[in-house]
Write a protein that binds this DNA or RNA. Structure first.
Length: 276
DNA sequence: ATGGCTTTATGCTAAAGA
């Protein structure tokens, strides 16, 4: 087997196109209750056929794993009554490496699931919302993000390949929301939240969507209220962050707005990543 | 038209989401 090349060129292209078995299509989707959205998720999986789907906001202790078996998916999940919860669907059975974000043993919230998938760490996150900012929820959010940064710094130090995907509850930049003034004091856009996001990025990560898409209006969430969806008043808070070696293999990253238009939709829509 | 949502829960109002 040839060693993987770092630089683009004819040989590399030939090498990459002959390594189809490494191709991977992985998606994220905050479904706002798996019970309420099961039919949508099954429909979308049948259409999009990703190798992996990382789901956020299950909103329950249980997960309907058997419903995904006919489509060929195995489920790994971390549930919690009423709130939070994340699940990762894969083509092959996997063993979870971590079911809680390290750094605070007293944190019981089901917001984190890390698995090994063919040598790559797939990290599924549902970061805290943090509103209202004058409550204990905001410092919890910032502390949670700092714990994430410290854990990811450890992975980087060991040069482990990883993909972090999910609902970060952070609007990284002005162009990621329809009106920055409306959001300026919100926990999703406050300076401290964006500082934590940048600190994470500064470990050498790549925001996959922005590699080939510099447009305004690349949103992943539209509020149920005030006609946000028909008026395209959205925000981008669901992200894929890649370690450098995975970023080198990036093929595409797109937002699939279709499910947001379905009847009784989640307020979030899937983001799909393809790596070679 | 100046208000307009969705989900869960020892539910029938409250809390949370973003």
């Amino acid at each position: 087997m040839h060693e993987r090349r770092r630089y683009a060129g004819t040989e590399t292209k030939t090498l990459l196109t002959t390594r189809k078995t490494r191709d991977m299509k992985i998606a994220i989707w905050n479904v706002n209750s798996i019970k309420a959205r099961l039919d949508h998720v099954l429909q979308w999986l049948g259409d999009a056929r990703p190798d992996v789907l990382m789901i956020q906001e299950l909103k329950g202790l249980e997960f309907p794993a058997a419903a995904f078996t006919p489509l060929g998916y195995h489920a790994t999940f971390v549930g919690q009554k009423t709130y939070n919860g994340v699940a990762t669907l894969t083509r092959t059975p996997v063993t979870p490496l971590l079911e809680r974000l390290p750094g605070d043993d007293s944190d019981e919230q089901a917001r984190y699931l890390e698995i090994d998938y063919n040598g790559t760490r797939l990290i599924n996150i549902y970061a805290p919302n943090g509103n209202p900012v004058d409550s204990e929820k905001y410092p919890y959010k910032l502390a949670w993000l700092e714990r994430l940064r410290l854990h990811v710094a450890g992975l980087r130090a060991k040069a482990l390949p990883f993909i972090i995907g999910g609902d970060f509850n952070i609007i990284p930049d002005d162009r990621d929301c329809y009106d920055p003034k409306v959001w300026q004091d919100d926990a999703l856009f406050r300076l401290e939240s964006r500082q934590q996001f940048r600190a994470l990025m500064n470990l050498g990560l790549t925001d996959a969507l922005r590699v080939n898409n510099q447009s305004d209006g690349a949103y992943t969430f539209w509020d149920y209220q005030a006609g946000a969806w028909p008026q395209n008043k959205g925000i981008r808070i669901d992200h894929f962050l890649l370690s450098p070696d995975i970023a080198d293999r990036l093929q595409a990253c797109v937002i699939d707005k279709t499910p947001r238009g379905w009847d009784k939709a989640s307020d979030h829509t899937p983001v799909v990543l393809e790596i070679t």
